[in-house]
Design a protein around this nucleic acid. Structure first.
Lengths: 201, 201
DNA sequence: GGTCGCCCGTGACGTTTGTCACCCTGCATT
DNA sequence: AATGCAGGGTGACAAACGTCACGGGCGACC
C-alpha cells in the first residue's frame, strides 16, 4: 500500500483528488493539509511514501515545503503538482530534490501512475514542460539582485526596501537598476513582472 | 438519475471531480468540456439537468457560458464553481440566473448536495461567501480609475498607459493618484497589490 | 436652475526613481 | 601579482512620478 500525503489549498479539489486516489487499490491517502506550513508536521505524523504538493498554497510555497520535507523525511518521495508550466518552478523543484513535476492540465489517470513511478524511483516530468525548461536557461540575476527585486514586491518605496534589507538606499537602487537592465525593463514593476513570468522570482 | 455537465479547464481537476460525482448513486456525469465556448454545444447534445461551470476557462467565461446556456436550455440548472470569492462574480452570476455559487474551498461533500438542492429548485450559495460579499462592500474606485489601475499592470510608464487608453498622460496620472488616495497606497504598485487583495481588480 | 459626481485636460511643484561615474572591500580565477 | 566580478556605498543628474489647483464638459438628481 502506497501511503500518500496530499497538500492542496482548495478544499474541493483536494477532496476530489483524494477520492480519485482512494479508488486505486494500492494507494491510500493518509494525510491531507491545506497549507504549506502544515506539510512537515503532517508528514512527521503520518510518514507517507509520497507527498503530493501544490505550489500555490498559503503559509508556505509547495517548493519551500518540499525543501523542508526533503530534509525532515529523506525517504519520502515528493511530487509537485501545479497549474502553471513555469519552467523556473520546474528547475527549482528538481534541484530541490523533487521526484516529479505534474501539471493539473494532465489527464487525471496520470496521477496514480506518476505516484507509482515515483515510488519505484523514477523521475516523473511532463515531457513538454521539460523541453520548455531546457530552452529557457538560468536567471541572469545575481543573488542580491534577485533578493532585492523579490523584496520590492512587498515594499513600496526604496526607503522601505533599504530598511528591510539593511542596505543603503543608493545600493538598493543600484541593484534594482542593474536587474532592470538585465531584464530589459524600464521599471521596477515591469522587472518584477518579467522575472515572475520567467519563473525567476 | 441526475445528469450533470462538467465544465472546468484543468484536466486533472475535472477528472477528479467527475470521479467524485460518479461515486454518488443518483448522479451521472454525462458531458465534460474544458472550454467555455464548448458548453452550449455539449449541453445541446447531452441535455443535462445541471451544468457545473468553472468561471475561469479559455474561450468563454463560465459566467458568459451561463448566460448562453440559460437561453438555450432554460430547464437546465446552473451552478457556478470557482476559486475566488469575488463578490462581483457572485452578484453577476445570480443576476444571470444561476441556481448557485460554489467555492472550490468548500468541502467536496457539499458538491453533490448542492447539485441535489439545485435540482430541487433551491438556490445554493456558500454562506461564508455571501457574508463576505456583504461585509466587503463595493470597490470605492470609479469605473475609470478601475480601468486605469487595471491597465497599469501591463503598461510600465504613464506614457504607455495614456497611449493604450487614448487619454492624456495628465489624466492618467490624475486617475491613478485618486485611486491611490482611495486605497491609501503610496504607489501605483502598492495600489495594484491592495486592490488585487480586495478582489477589486 | 442648481448641485453633485465623474470624466478629461493643463500647468506647476516637490519628490522619487533610474542612471551613471566613481570609490572601496572581498574572493576567485588566471 | 593581476584581473574580473559580486557586493556595498556615495554623489550627481535627468526623467518619471505623485500631488495639487484649476479649467472645462456631461449626465443625474433634487
Amino acid at each position: 500500500m502506497i501511503r500518500v500525503l496530499l497538500a492542496e489549498d482548495q478544499t474541493m479539489v483536494r477532496g476530489a483528488l483524494a477520492s480519485l486516489l482512494n479508488l486505486e487499490p494500492d494507494i491510500e491517502v493518509v494525510a491531507q493539509v491545506s497549507r504549506g506550513d502544515e506539510v512537515a508536521a503532517a508528514a512527521a505524523a503520518s510518514v507517507p511514501d509520497v507527498a503530493l504538493l501544490d505550489i500555490e498554497m498559503p503559509g508556505r510555497t509547495g517548493l519551500d515545503a518540499a525543501d523542508e520535507l526533503a530534509r525532515a523525511l529523506p525517504g519520502c518521495r515528493i511530487l509537485i503538482l501545479t497549474t502553471f508550466g513555469r519552467p523556473g518552478y520546474l528547475r527549482r523543484a528538481m534541484e530541490g530534490g523533487a521526484a516529479g513535476f505534474l501539471l493539473k492540465d494532465a489527464p487525471a489517470s496520470e496521477l496514480a501512475s506518476a505516484i507509482r513511478r515515483a515510488v519505484a524511483g523514477e523521475r516523473v516530468v511532463d515531457p513538454g514542460l521539460a523541453a520548455a525548461a531546457l530552452s529557457q536557461g538560468e536567471s541572469p540575476l545575481t543573488p542580491r539582485e534577485h533578493e532585492v527585486l523579490r523584496a520590492s514586491r512587498q515594499h513600496a518605496t526604496v526607503a522601505d526596501l533599504a530598511q528591510a534589507l539593511y542596505l543603503s538606499p543608493g545600493t538598493v537602487r543600484n541593484h534594482l537598476s542593474s536587474a532592470m537592465q538585465k531584464l530589459d525593463a524600464r521599471n521596477r514593476g515591469e522587472a518584477v513582472r518579467m522575472a515572475e513570468e520567467q519563473g525567476w522570482l
